[in-house]
Nucleic acid binder design. Structure first.
Length: 897
RNA sequence: GCCCGGGUGGCGGAAUGGUAGACGCGGGGGACUUAAAAUCCCUUGUCUUCGGACGUGCGGGUUCAAAUCCCGCCCCGGGCACCA
């Protein structure tokens, strides 16, 4: 009987389950290794072959580290709150909970079929009240804290110093003062409001609804915000210690985006009082003399107060138009040169030269960045320049190139640094010094100060949905917000039968009156938390998932944390990782965790791409609606040195295109089918063999078959496959076999080990393939001990087959905890090595050099051998070489004149 | 527009300054078979006057030596986007 995965795989999966082979227990005597996957959202369409790429990589590491003697924690769970289940509920009436747990069952079934070595006893779902109880608990920690800038850490709100004048103003004032300083606070933030549907839309939904004819406007809504900006600098600084790819570190830094500059105060002309000023942030205070107008974001709170009656209609119309555009639309339109804006009628006074300059509003200025207002320097900023040209505003040059080269700022902005001109007290100073001097002057005049600004914004943390964690907060009749108290956790979601928002646009929870209204007249908060909440701390819960009295014990946290290896998609490179790091730092400040950072090493796996087909003729492709075909509709014609695709019916020539797999594109491969045909081991092997883990690669069914053939060959090293008989184990030889086999074996041990350490799994698999091929070629029977070592090397990649073969060798135990084999260095040394002979850098021949000539010592002898070689005499003749380069163990290069 | 990746045979890829194309797929030839499947063996970058020449997106450069380092450009993918 040939290799029969369908029998082998379920057998070993049952064995692992029964023996709880992968259960992790704290063991101070052994080093720990925590290897984590980004846990999935269990979608209705189930797993596709992209999911298991990362899961296979972590499983290889988990199995490898176990064999290396590490105590491995390798858990899996479900990020199960989310919009799709709620949508499904609205459509079908199925409770999101029912749908969610159905999907989880399906995902779990699929993952189990792949033979991953998860400790399933630690399985968690963010939607379990036992889990979200602690999500709410962490929220209360955050809400119950303030950021002490002096100590640079979060502290309990009870330790917040209350200024005497606040104290004197009474309890209400004290309460309000505390609320202002909490890390979770209420704030009016703009949302995408769809009046027709009475719902708040996610950014990605806006286009769809607008296309469907619905109006979507940006309106401010009272929302919970988390003060992640307090951590901006630490979130940047602590990146330095992480073993993450440089590109992800770069993305995180760019997202937070620190910039240094100054905040400058402009007085409003003709108005007095502390409110009569406009604060702007600028990275170029040295260009202050060139500020010829100001621009406010249309949402800026001062807009309505400063606008003159003559301009009011125009301003209000513009504000209204802006509300219909998403932030992205505004920015795209403006980037395409479409500068719009309206004069408010008001003026400000430039603090450096007392010039009266007009104040405009324009949607190229965003409320969410800096102060929501800018000083415009059209001479030295391309955006301001374009706006000034469009609106006919003056352009003044205040920086000249240091080279003295003449420029014309009327024609084009000059944003580079240079030397200040037309700038009063900073004239002739280079940009860096000019910035410093003008900032000092502003500070002395109390008209500004140096400031660091971050692009990072506070985190909008509330959603108007049902299927999320309820906030553990109540609103008292007095208007004060209070915690429900830790003892009242979890605040469970009420049972409702309608998941739509209320008539007035309140969240669905507002309709559960018996839940919302409390006996003392308080009302529960009816927003829910975003999906990020549960995924911000699940790695901590995995350390101690069944703890009923705490989110985790400090014993478990101190033993398992930090996560040693974290693998997931690049789409989470910014937000998820930033939010989780932020929560972790709050927990660190409050003494709940012992590490500054949660994830030591991070790897982003690439995408698995699926095929679709489009017309090859560009005219046919662009004419009419876009036509895309899926594999079933396409015939592949192999021309030997090329492949062509045609439509099965119409015979239209097509080209293949590769995209990220998605249900909507129709290019998804279902792992169930792959496993049914080839088995989990083949699937795992192919996932890793496709290419480097971090690269995206197309899913090619022929490649899967190649991996299957390899496993079949490996199987036949152990078993005869006579035609009409049951499998019979081969008579294996003794020990590690012939010297040649031993050398091959130890070379393979060394290569596979080193490649797993580097997570270069595709090349590790290729070593295993070479081993099997060469043993076959060798003809001699494989030694029994060599066969055992091969099983060990194969185990991380194809664990079912490895166990099966290991058992066939007579081993009664699973090889999960067998020690990883060590390569014998003596066997890695070859008896001879190949010296390449180059002439003028071109390869002209090679020589076998016996190992008795040490490549490092015997430079002269080796060079001599090369000089005497046939290649040299042919290409050099008797010309004396100008130079001879010797690279030990590699080559001799003879350079002629 | 900016930022980050990437571009190597018919295809996935290997090689991170030192033999370009490991390993796999696909192709060609053969063995076994009544035949097919499965399996196994040989072969497979291009051109060639059979000496060799060319070849890692394109053009330059550094070096005895470049897929690899540097400069400029083109193309593909992803992210961000008037970020003051």
């Amino acid at each position: 009987m040939p290799y029969d995965h369908a029998t082998i795989e379920p057998r070993w999966q049952a064995y692992w389950d029964e023996h709880q082979s992968f259960e992790a227990k704290i063991d101070e005597a052994r080093p720990k290794y925590y290897v984590l996957d980004m846990f999935p959202y269990p979608s209705g369409s189930g797993l596709h072959v992209g999911h298991p790429e990362g899961y296979t990589a972590t499983d290889i590491m988990a199995r490898y580290k176990r064999m290396r003697g590490f105590n491995v924690l390798h858990p899996m769970g479900w990020d199960s709150f989310g919009l799709p289940a709620e949508r499904y509920a609205m459509k079908t009436g199925t409770h999101p909970r029912d749908r969610t747990y159905e999907c989880i069952d399906n995902f779990k079934r699929q993952l189990k079929m792949l033979g991953f070595s998860y400790d399933w006893s630690r399985e968690i779902a963010t939607t379990d009240p036992d889990y979200y109880k602690w999500t709410q608990w962490i929220f209360l920690q955050i809400w119950g804290s303030w950021y002490d800038a002096e100590q640079d850490k979060a502290r309990p709100i009870s330790e917040l110093p209350i200024p005497a004048e606040v104290e004197a103003a009474g309890d209400r004032a004290v309460h309000a003062y505390r609320d202002e300083h909490r890390l979770a606070y209420l704030h009016d933030a703009p949302v995408n409001w769809c009046p027709d549907l009475r719902v708040v839309l996610a950014n990605e939904e806006v286009a769809e609804q607008v296309e469907a004819g619905h109006e979507v406007i940006r309106v401010p809504m009272h929302q919970w915000m988390l003060k992640i900006t307090a951590y901006a600098q630490r979130l940047i600084d602590d990146l330095d210690d992480l073993d993450w790819s440089p590109s992800v570190l770069e993305m995180q830094r760019n997202w937070i985006c620190r910039s240094e500059g100054a905040e400058v105060v402009f007085e409003l002309d003709g108005q007095a009082g502390p409110d009569a000023q406009l604060r702007v942030f600028t990275t170029r205070p040295d260009t202050l003399f060139g500020a010829t107008y100001m621009v406010l974001a249309p949402e800026h709170p001062l807009v309505s107060t400063i606008t003159t009656d003559a301009q009011r209609d125009a301003v209000e119309a513009y504000v209204k138009t802006t509300a219909h555009r998403t932030e992205r639309e505004r920015q795209v339109a403006a980037a395409e040169g479409d500068k719009t804006g309206v004069f408010t009628g008001a003026h400000a006074i430039n603090p450096v030269n007392d010039q009266r300059i007009p104040i405009w509003i324009a949607d190229y200025v965003l409320m969410g960045y800096g102060t929501g207002a800018i000083m415009a320097v059209p001479g030295h900023d391309a955006r301001d320049h374009a706006f000034a040209r469009t609106m006919g505003l003056p352009i003044v040059q205040v920086v000249a190139p240091a080279t003295g080269e003449p420029i014309d700022v009327q024609a084009q902005a000059y944003p580079e640094p240079g030397v200040a001109v037309n700038s009063g007290l900073i004239n002739d100073l280079p940009t860096a010094e000019a910035k410093q001097k003008i900032t000092e002057w502003l500070t002395a005049q109390a008209k500004g100060e140096a400031r660091v600004n971050y692009k990072l914004r506070d985190w909008l943390f509330s959603r108007q949905r049902y299927w999320g964690e309820p906030f553990p907060l109540i609103h008292k009749p007095s208007g004060e917000v209070a915690s429900v108290g830790v003892d009242a956790l979890p605040v469970e979601l009420p049972e409702v039968d309608d998941f739509n928002p209320s008539e007035t646009g309140e969240p669905p929870l507002a309709k559960a009156l018996s839940w919302v209204e409390l006996p003392d007249g308080s009302r529960r908060e009816t927003n829910t938390m975003p999906q990020w909440a549960g995924s911000c701390w699940y790695y901590l819960r995995f350390c101690d998932p069944r703890n009923a009295s705490a989110p985790w014990s400090s014993e478990a946290e101190q033993y398992w944390m930090p996560v040693d290896l974290y693998v997931g998609g690049a789409e989470h490179a910014v937000l998820h990782l930033l939010y989780a790091r932020f929560w972790h730092k709050v927990l660190f400040d409050l003494g709940h965790v012992s590490t500054r950072e949660p994830f030591k090493k991070l790897v982003n796996q690439g995408m698995v791409l699926g095929a679709t087909y489009v017309p090859r003729d560009p005219q046919a492709a662009s004419a009419g609606p876009k036509r895309v075909f899926v594999s079933d509709e396409v015939e592949e014609i192999n021309l030997g040195d090329a492949v062509e695709y045609v439509h099965k019916q119409t015979r239209e020539p097509l080209t293949i295109q590769w995209d990220k797999m998605s249900k909507s594109r129709g290019n998804v491969i279902n792992p169930d089918e792959v496993i049914a045909e080839y088995g989990a081991d083949t699937m795992r092997l192919y996932e890793m063999f496709m290419g480097p883990l971090e690269a995206s690669a197309p899913w090619q069914p022929e490649g899967v078959a190649g991996c299957f053939r390899f496993l079949g060959r490996a199987y036949r090293l152990f078993f005869e496959s006579p035609k009409d008989a049951e499998d019979r184990a081969r008579d294996l030889g003794e020990g590690q076999g012939s010297e040649r086999q031993r050398r091959l074996l130890h070379r393979t041990i060394a290569d596979v080990s080193e490649r797993i350490e580097r997570m270069a799994f595709n090349t590790a698999i290729s070593s295993l393939m070479v081993f099997v091929r060469d043993v076959e070629k060798d003809g001699e029977t494989l030694g029994r001990d060599a066969a055992g070592i091969f099983c060990q090397l194969l185990a991380p990649f194809a664990p079912h087959l490895a166990e099966e073969l290991w058992r066939a060798l007579g081993n009664p135990q699973s090889l999960t905890y067998e020690p990883w084999p060590q390569a014998d260095p003596a066997l890695l040394v070859e008896d001879s090595w190949t010296l390449v002979v180059q002439v003028n850098g071109k390869r002209r021949g090679e020589l076998k050099i016996p190992a008795s000539l040490d490549p490092k010592q015997a430079k002269d002898e080796i060079t001599e051998l090369a000089m005497a070689s046939e290649a040299v005499s042919r290409f050099v003749g008797d010309k004396p070489p100008k130079r001879v380069i010797y690279v030990p163990g590699r080559l001799v290069n003879i350079v002629l004149g």
